[in-house]
Simulated scan of single mutants.
Amino acid sequence: MKAVRVSYIITEAENGYIEHHATRARKFAGDDFNNSQLIRVGIHLLSNLTDGELVKAFKNIVKLPKGRPRSR
């Protein structure tokens, strides 16, 4: 399996969810568990959704601008 490096724009709240759930997962999987694995778990869970459930989930997500955030 070949790994690729990608980057995405997410909200601060979503990043907090990742950190929260990764911390939860480390309780069971140990320190070897990382945020990348959490994202991959989420992708696998998405594949179990029906089309209707997926559409409903997407409707709850705010669309963010493309590209890098502007420097302050």
Score class of each variant (00 low, 15 high):
residue 32 D to N: 13
residue 41 V to L: 10
residue 55 V to G: 00
residue 28 F to E: 12
residue 6 V to Y: 13
residue 50 T to F: 08
residue 30 G to Q: 06
residue 23 T to W: 05
residue 43 I to A: 13
residue 62 V to S: 13
residue 35 N to V: 10
residue 37 Q to T: 11
residue 22 A to Y: 01
residue 50 T to Q: 09
residue 51 D to C: 08
residue 12 E to M: 01
residue 25 A to Y: 05
residue 65 P to L: 13
residue 14 E to C: 01
residue 3 A to C: 03
residue 65 P to M: 15
residue 49 L to Y: 15
residue 6 V to C: 07
residue 42 G to K: 09
residue 13 A to R: 10
residue 54 L to H: 14
residue 15 N to I: 01
residue 60 N to Y: 11
residue 17 Y to D: 07
residue 37 Q to H: 12
residue 9 I to C: 06
residue 58 F to K: 15
residue 3 A to L: 08
residue 15 N to P: 01
residue 39 I to M: 13
residue 31 D to M: 06
residue 61 I to C: 08
residue 50 T to Y: 03
residue 18 I to W: 01
residue 39 I to L: 11
residue 59 K to N: 09
residue 2 K to I: 13
residue 46 L to Y: 12
residue 20 H to F: 03
residue 49 L to E: 11
residue 24 R to N: 11
residue 24 R to K: 06
residue 33 F to V: 07
residue 68 R to K: 15
residue 56 K to L: 04
residue 67 G to K: 12
residue 27 K to L: 06
residue 57 A to K: 11
residue 67 G to N: 10
residue 63 K to N: 10
residue 56 K to N: 10
residue 23 T to A: 05
residue 5 R to G: 11
residue 3 A to M: 09
residue 44 H to E: 08
residue 4 V to N: 14
residue 34 N to W: 14
residue 20 H to Y: 07
residue 47 S to M: 12
residue 8 Y to W: 10
residue 4 V to K: 14
residue 10 I to W: 01
residue 20 H to N: 04
residue 16 G to P: 00
residue 25 A to G: 05
residue 33 F to E: 01
residue 44 H to Y: 08
residue 56 K to F: 07
residue 13 A to H: 08
residue 32 D to M: 05
residue 10 I to T: 07
residue 33 F to W: 13
residue 11 T to C: 02
residue 2 K to D: 11
residue 41 V to R: 04
residue 63 K to A: 11
residue 61 I to P: 00
residue 6 V to L: 12
residue 35 N to D: 05
residue 11 T to K: 06
residue 14 E to L: 02
residue 67 G to S: 12
residue 60 N to V: 06
residue 31 D to Y: 07
residue 20 H to S: 05
residue 5 R to Q: 14
residue 11 T to F: 03
residue 36 S to Y: 02
residue 69 P to A: 13
residue 12 E to D: 09
residue 8 Y to P: 00
residue 15 N to M: 03
residue 17 Y to V: 05
residue 40 R to T: 08
residue 37 Q to N: 01
residue 49 L to M: 14
residue 49 L to K: 15
residue 39 I to Y: 03
residue 23 T to F: 02
residue 20 H to M: 03
residue 12 E to C: 03
residue 67 G to C: 11
residue 39 I to C: 05
residue 59 K to F: 00
residue 36 S to T: 14
residue 25 A to T: 08
residue 44 H to P: 00
residue 66 K to M: 12
residue 37 Q to Y: 02
residue 44 H to D: 12
residue 5 R to N: 11
residue 13 A to D: 09
residue 68 R to A: 14
residue 19 E to C: 01
residue 39 I to R: 14
residue 44 H to V: 09
residue 31 D to F: 09
residue 45 L to Y: 15
residue 16 G to E: 06
residue 13 A to Y: 04
residue 11 T to L: 03
residue 31 D to W: 03
residue 38 L to K: 07
residue 27 K to D: 09
residue 23 T to D: 03
residue 40 R to W: 03
residue 14 E to Q: 03
